[in-house]
């Protein structure tokens, strides 16, 4: 029985490879930064690919909404093993509010009748954690958040998800498909692209869809500004050579009686 999965991925500023944030206007300076796949979405994609590996007749579509730069992230998803890459071309400049992204993704997904939609639990940059649940609300799908384990019953068209809670607890829930899950990091480390998929991803065309953004009724939340956090505590930075710093630290530890 065919089963189709949509994974929603976001391109976020790449800070892991040494990029630093600069502020421009009310948001960051997007011209001085590289982009990569949101960490949480990479885990969502990995979860989808693991489901695909374990069964037959499962397709995985990877979708990203945003300006043209998101295409690199879509290619990365193809290289990891997604079957189809979809670019929802939106909003050439600036950011997409979660509700705006959710509405456009939901409108697109409705036409494709996916059995399962996965998103990351949140995005590393804006950290809202609400886009996935809003897509589910727009499509009236059952939804569970922060899944760390997914077990799918393809024939029974249902799934059981283990959803992480605080302090080492997890809730087990069952949802009928079609459903939406937001995926939390942890269970399977996202795979590296294979050579064959990388070659395929370079040649494969990315499907492009232009959503209708006119009837967007979602209430606005405006970013006034971003700022670097104030140095609130009086953190004392040790100065000097490496050896001097080590010795000062050891003196501190010793004076408190912590050292052996």
């Amino acid at each position: 029985m065919a089963f189709s999965i949509l994974v929603c991925i976001k391109a976020v500023p790449d800070l892991a490879s040494g990029g630093t944030l600069a502020i421009a206007g009310p948001w960051i300076d997007e011209t001085v930064i590289g982009w990569c796949m949101n960490h949480y979405d990479a885990y969502a994609l990995e979860a989808a690919l693991a489901i695909k590996d374990a069964a037959t007749d499962i397709t995985v579509d990877a979708l990203s909404a945003g300006p043209d730069r998101v295409q690199n992230t879509i290619r990365r998803a193809l290289a990891m093993g997604a079957d189809t890459g979809i670019h929802l071309a939106m909003n050439a400049v600036g950011r997409l509010a979660p509700a705006t992204a959710a509405l456009s993704i939901a409108r697109f997904a409705k036409t494709k009748r996916y059995d399962l939609i996965l998103t990351g639990a949140m995005s590393e940059d804006e950290m809202h954690g609400i886009t996935g649940p809003m897509i589910a609300a727009a499509l009236d799908l059952p939804c569970a958040a922060a899944a760390v384990e997914i077990s799918l019953d393809v024939a029974g068209r249902s799934l059981t998800a283990t959803c992480e809670m605080e302090g080492g607890m997890a809730e087990i829930v069952r949802l009928p498909c079609p459903a939406l899950l937001t995926v939390q990091t942890g269970q399977r480390i996202p795979r590296y692209p294979s050579l064959s998929n990388t070659i395929r991803s370079r040649r494969q065309a990315i499907e492009r869809a232009v959503p209708d953004e006119t009837a967007n009724h979602t209430p606005t939340v405006d970013t006034l500004r971003v700022s670097f956090p104030q140095q609130t505590t009086s953190c004392q930075f040790f100065e000097g050579t490496r050896i001097e710093k080590a010795d000062r630290l050891l003196r501190l530890f010793n004076d408190n009686g912590w050292l052996k």
């Binding site: 954690g129 609300a137 992480e164």
Partner: peptide, 21 residues
Amino acid sequence: MRACQAAATMAWRIKAPCITA
């Protein structure tokens, strides 16, 4: 995360803005 889900779902239904954390 689950309160974010509840908040987002209800905000969507009542057409209210939702801001987390």
